[in-house]
Structure formats: structure tokens, C-alpha cells
Amino acid sequence: MSLNADLLLLLVIGIDLFIGSTGRLGARIRACALQGLVLAALPLAIQGTGVLTGGERVLHTVLAVLATLLLKAVAIPYFLMRAMRQSGVQREAEPEHSLHLSLLLCAVLVGLSFWISAVMLPPPEAGSSPLGVPAGLATLLVGLYLTVGGRTELTQVIGYLVLENGVFVIGQRVLGEFPLVVELGVLLDVLVAVMLMAVLVAFGHRQDPSAAGNGAATPVGGAR
């Protein structure tokens, strides 16, 4: 395990905290893109760059890294930015808590995930980064916080992506490598994100996004 991996994981946590503390959607999306970049770099950091030059799973790894890079760092942030511009929402409308409080909460979540991985989970194998699980867990929790606490659909989608990133990190940490299915999963996330984006656009056209998703208030529908 190289120092690089630890640094990258620390960076992931840092991005979590940043996303938690900013109210601007654009900044959040960019941070998300950065996190995607980091995630793409993670397999290289863990397995060493040598994996690119030899070994049986070269193609596999290259593809995974490229897919991750392309999707998480480029495509999705691009769509998100577009959706943001179309919906005309630039920042979290009237954040529920002050941003300081939000940052504090994210910090607590990060602390919590360190505690959980120290107390509840088995100790990491020798040689693997001790930061893997806490970082993944922290990302997951922050993502959940954003999804649950988000007041606009865009924030919720960003939260969901962060959450996905967390699962991704944990998966990598637990499984040590990318199995085929996880790659498929990554691709699927893209599909989900695209779907969400489509929905988001639909909302953008139909205004009043704040009332969205309130199922109980759905009027009794017509003939369907």
C-alpha cells in the first residue's frame, strides 16, 4: 500500500466536507467531478501503476479506470451542470441549517464513520490502507445526508452520487479489486444518473420543483 492511496482517500474525505459546507450547486458539482477523478485514480494507487504495463488484468483495469474517469468525472458533472443551468437554480434555496452547522454535521459524520470502522468492523488486513473503510463510510454518510437533507432535486442527485462513490470506495476496499459486476454497476449508475437528469429536466420545464415528490398529496388520478 502506497502513501498515494492514503492521500487519495484523505482527499475523498476532504471533498465530502467541502460539499457539505458549500451552498453553491456549481461548486458541489465540480467537487463531485473531482471526487470521480480521485476514484478513478484509486485503483492505480492501490495496485500501483505497474498494473498498466503488465499482468493479466491490464485491459480490465484500464477499462475500469477509463470508464470511471469518463463517467464520474466528466459526463455526469457535465449533465448536472446543464440541468442546473436549465432549472435556473444556482444555489441551495434557503439552506435548512446554516452552512457552518452543515459542515459541523459532516465532520461529525466523518468522525462517526472512523468510530464505526474502528469499533464495529474487523481490523483491516495488513498492508491495506486503514483509511479505506472510514473514507468510504464517510462518503456514504455524507451522501445520505445530502440526499435526505437536500431541498432540491439537484442536491438530492448530487447526494446520491456521493453516496454511490462511498459504496464504490468501500467495495474497492473490501474486495480489493474490481470484479466485472462492479464495473457493470458503475455503468448502471450512469444510467440512473441520466434517468434522474431526464426527470430533473422534466421538472425544470414544469416548474415548481419544491413540491415535487410529495406522494401523499398526489391527487387521485384519471383513467390509467
Partner: peptide
Amino acid sequence: QPSVRASWTYLMICSVGIA
């Protein structure tokens, strides 16, 4: 509107669940 909304809720909850 209602169907898109329902679809959104469905996607969101089930995606998080499935995560």
C-alpha cells in the same frame, strides 16, 4: 407531472435502497 414525480420518487428511493 404526477407520473414523472412518481417515477422520480421510485428511482430515488430504490436507487438509494439498492446502493
